[in-house]
Design a protein around this nucleic acid. Sequence first.
DNA 1: TTGTATGCGTTATCAA
DNA 2: TTGATAACGCATACAA
Lengths: 340, 340
Amino acid sequence: MSVTIKQISEISGVSRGTVDRVLHGRGRVSPEKEALVRRVAEQLGYKPNLAGKALAARKKSYAIGVLLTAEGVSFFDEVIRGVRQAAGEFSDYGVTVVLKTIKGYDGAVQLQAMDALSRQVNVLILNPINEPEIIQKINELAGSGVQVITLNTDVDKSRRLCYIGPDYFRSGQAACGIMGLLLRGSGKIGILTGSVKILGHNQRIAGVRSVIRERFPGLSVEDLDETGDDDVRAYAAASRMLREHPDLDGLILVAAGSYGVCRAVLELPEERRPRIVSMDSVPTTVEMLQTGVIQATVCQQPFTQGYQAVQRAFRYLVQGESPPEERIFMETEIRIRETV
Amino acid sequence: MSVTIKQISEISGVSRGTVDRVLHGRGRVSPEKEALVRRVAEQLGYKPNLAGKALAARKKSYAIGVLLTAEGVSFFDEVIRGVRQAAGEFSDYGVTVVLKTIKGYDGAVQLQAMDALSRQVNVLILNPINEPEIIQKINELAGSGVQVITLNTDVDKSRRLCYIGPDYFRSGQAACGIMGLLLRGSGKIGILTGSVKILGHNQRIAGVRSVIRERFPGLSVEDLDETGDDDVRAYAAASRMLREHPDLDGLILVAAGSYGVCRAVLELPEERRPRIVSMDSVPTTVEMLQTGVIQATVCQQPFTQGYQAVQRAFRYLVQGESPPEERIFMETEIRIRETV
DNA sequence: TTGTATGCGTTATCAA
DNA sequence: TTGATAACGCATACAA
């Protein structure tokens, strides 16, 4: 049975209030008692009891805001499921979760939503658009006591509390690793990215290239194009690529738009189709895995991303616990037809 | 903010004690009040607060016993890590976890350990040896109020609370799925199992065969042998198999002993070595993935197995919550060199 | 500067 | 059969 504030107060011969003041650094305690209490707490290995903390915290009723560019992006369905699950579990502890979704990647829209949401919450979770005014707003909120957690995508050098999401470099490595195995270490591949302006996509491409360099030098990147995370544009890009490079052995998709790519590939006769390794596991991707068009897909635990973001916010608010790392990465999972 | 017992008592005009008696079916309540309280609780959507429950439960100090055949079996290291992690997190709630490991698969030894451990705990978690006296003991304990959770391996038709562990059939499917991709759908494979007497291993083999039948008819199983989950015996079995079938394209290992198999394979010249898909991710397997001898391994979240088993026991004891399913399966994860 | 009292939600005990 | 009360561990308002 672990040690409580009450026990510390009894052993050190002071009141519970004094122990509380020392442990929370609220001041107004004589140096001698302060030292005494600290020593006793240290020796007994005091760790605050979460149930007690949580119960007491109910009186304060915290709120957590979640702002996602999720409208029309099916990847976020699972993230939102994770957010909702956590919200349900933590409602017991007097914490409310406010979810707001927006459409598209317009910085001004996100900025305005941040502003509105931040007024009613203590922690704001969002997938930030990488623009200066957003970063500035994050810093401003952090300054005014509303902590920010970046989810799924990070921004450079901001005062956010932490980042929770994919390790983009590593997922690129995984995609190339599985492609190298499928091609037995040699062949020509094409890469389809979302946008050369998006940091995460570029990190994935860097991961792909690192594995080629270090493990599969027999693979060569013949072409690279953008899908804009959009199936229509992805179809066009893939069609062009397949026309100009009819001898491609593999396609690595480091962003969304895989359904469009698959449609282009399906126009080829079966024996000439390249192997495809994609990212994430949205319904259309599952379908393409099941029909054998995509061989493998690399996932980054979307549900867990949402769940953990809310969980971190909760722990920060209720338990006064800061994240163990500045960046919390999801595991990189490889899925095939049998494991989707 | 969710509804509390206090609110129910105020609205229905009875005391908190009465509400408690109704909600817990403790009897000694007049039918009219019982109906009233039930109706109010229903309408308000009452859900007990976990923090409150947990705090109150501290007065009772429950114990959870964990009994594993883990000595000298490195697979269980991660399971135990999960058990310890959960034990630490739940110590806040007045729950003690007693871990006991035994060596080997002797039913009499396990039976004796069960007997000793069950005297000091409220829930017993174990990986049962599939023998009649063990099943009988499980039923006996369940009858006497000590619930049993089977971990990692299950037994037929016992009165256990639930099973938590791998979906053996599915992991066999995954292993064959990845092998089929590596071999492009055609080739000769050999299977190395632990023992033809162990249910889980046989289920994995059935999974392998089902994928061959339905998706990769070009694969043929040329040979099958036992490793006894032991590297020395595995080496001998694999050596024999490779000698008698020098044209094997792939080996699927559905049990432990992969290091012994790899040693046998490494005696072949590189170009004649079969592809290897193994199970689990013990240190020697990681090493063989990194050196490229094993191409992929199928994991079943050993840490999560241990964590969730204790978590389930905790929820049962403290929160009075029964498992949602009779069998709780781990996710089937494929790992390659880049993702171990 | 220090101690005491109260409340968070649940459970258990005791008295009526 | 019912209600009042105390306790779990923590936080805090208030009194001394």
